[in-house]
Amino acid sequence: MKMSIKRKTLYGAVALLLFTCPCIPGNAADGPEMVELGSLTQYYEPVQFDHELHVGMIESNECAICHHHTLGTPVLDPVCQRCHASSGETDFVACRDCHPAKRFSAEYLAVLEEDINLFHLEKPGLQGAFHQNCLECHKEYGAPTGCQDCHVRSEKGDKFFYSGEYAPEPADNSSGH
């Protein structure tokens, strides 16, 4: 099937928008207002991440809380400072630019193995990076920590968790076994 030029352009524009929005380097003020985090969603709806809101909660030079050393702002973790105290700004700053979507695929494991000098062996994948970074901070500052506080579960998710309309009949557990 052939796509019309109009449709191609539209898809192209959408793709461009999706891939560039979160990748703009620079200081916090240059960052996007909202970021839709949905490339991995399977059982939940995408997260509408209010970047501007979160930027407003920190000082202007504290980008490293989430962006590590990539924005050129001072690195806070003393362990990271050993190498990244003045490593400067990087070309790519979006989470997915460094954290792989398929962290444990054979392809990515082979990449890790090839680079014998690689220090960041334990770098989490994209899903892990989101949930480790976001949730840790949310816990610390008393922000919501429930799964559905950030992303609503889809029907596929309900089925996966045997929840909602897919919930099992309550079993008789009176025997205590």
Binding site: F104, S105, A106, E122, G125, G128, A129, F130, H131, C147
Partner: peptide
């Protein structure tokens, strides 16, 4: 087929690291 166990892939917090 070289894929990680289902639990490893599903874990949102990446509690589990799969590798050699």
């Amino acid at each position: 087929f070289g894929k990680p166990p289902a639990c490893v892939e599903a874990c949102p917090r990446e509690v589990m690291t799969f590798g050699k």
